[in-house]
Amino acid sequence: MTEQTYQAGSLSSDCRFVAKTGRLAAGGLLLAGAAWVARAVWEVRLALAGEPASGPPDQGGGEHRPLNSLENSYHLVTSLGGGAVVLCALLFLSWLARVRDNARALSGEEPKYAGIWLYLGWIVPLVNLWFPRGIVADAFRRTAPGRRLPVSVDVWWVLWVIGMLSGVGLLYEDSTDEIITRAYTEVWPLLASDAAVVGAAVAGALAVRAVTAVQTERMRATERASAVPTGAPPAA
């Protein structure tokens, strides 16, 4: 589909929809960032409180001691944070699918990455180190050929990868009780990872806003051009 095949009514609708999904995706990212700030606060509280005389929650050999109130509240914070991340992922993927489809329509060219990578690109090892950023960058470049990719896109992705590879970020493998133990004994790596995730969330929200704004601008320009009657002289 090329610009010329766009209908004015469809353009108006798509323009409003991508702006709406962009706002929701940016909000979801900031919500996830706030959840990770809360995690960091609780990890500092755990570090300051110090490990109880009874030892870590996971006693080894399949034995777990009863959690104290601070440890229980950390479990609650991480559960709420997990919910925020799921919501963020759904909103971000909805936005990403929309800008990808719009970029294809505006450019008349097929995207660089097949649609399945919108989802698998986040979880397939090695591929998840660059495919998601590539999908965002491809949508931007097809929307605005020749324009420089927003710096926020690269900042978002670098911080995301740092948080992911740190082992305690969004895709950590440790259980919550193991994270609690680490907060008691080595809180600084946890906080560094949290900072990377929060930074990625903020940069991601800025990237979403930047890409959405460029695409909205292009779609509105196309709509204005399509509204000019054929043969009419250009506006002064």
Rank of each mutant, 00 (worst) to 15 (best):
M1S: 14
M1Y: 09
Q4K: 13
Q7H: 11
A8I: 15
L11R: 06
S12E: 15
S12G: 14
S13H: 10
S13Q: 14
S13I: 14
S13P: 00
C15N: 12
C15L: 14
R16M: 10
F17W: 07
A19D: 10
R23E: 15
R23M: 12
L24S: 14
L24Y: 07
L30T: 07
A32R: 07
A32V: 01
A34C: 05
W36C: 01
W36T: 04
V37E: 10
A38Y: 00
V41Q: 08
W42E: 05
W42N: 07
W42F: 15
W42G: 03
A49F: 01
A53P: 00
S54R: 12
G55L: 08
P56I: 05
P57S: 09
G61I: 02
E63Y: 11
H64N: 06
H64F: 15
R65G: 09
P66S: 07
S69T: 10
N72C: 13
N72D: 13
L80E: 03
L80Y: 04
G82S: 12
G82N: 13
A84K: 07
V86C: 05
L87S: 07
C88W: 09
F92S: 08
L93E: 04
L93Y: 04
S94R: 13
R98D: 10
A103G: 03
A103P: 02
E110F: 06
P111F: 03
I116L: 14
W117H: 08
L118F: 04
I123G: 03
P125K: 05
L126D: 00
L126R: 01
L129F: 15
F131E: 00
A139R: 10
F140C: 03
R142T: 04
A144C: 11
P145E: 09
R147H: 09
L149A: 02
L149M: 12
V153M: 07
W157N: 06
W157C: 05
V158F: 10
V158K: 13
L159H: 02
W160S: 11
V161W: 04
G163H: 02
G167W: 06
G167N: 02
L170M: 14
L171Q: 09
Y172N: 14
D177R: 06
D177K: 06
T181Q: 13
T181G: 13
R182M: 14
R182F: 00
A183D: 03
A183Y: 01
E186L: 06
W188K: 08
W188M: 14
P189V: 07
P189K: 05
A192T: 10
S193M: 01
V197S: 02
G199L: 03
A200K: 01
A200T: 01
A203H: 01
A207M: 06
R209M: 04
A210Q: 07
T212Q: 09
V214A: 15
V214P: 01
V214D: 10
T216M: 11
T216G: 14
E217H: 13
E217I: 04
E223V: 00
R224L: 11
S226V: 06
V228H: 11
T230E: 12
G231T: 05
A232I: 01
P234N: 05
A235G: 08
A235K: 09
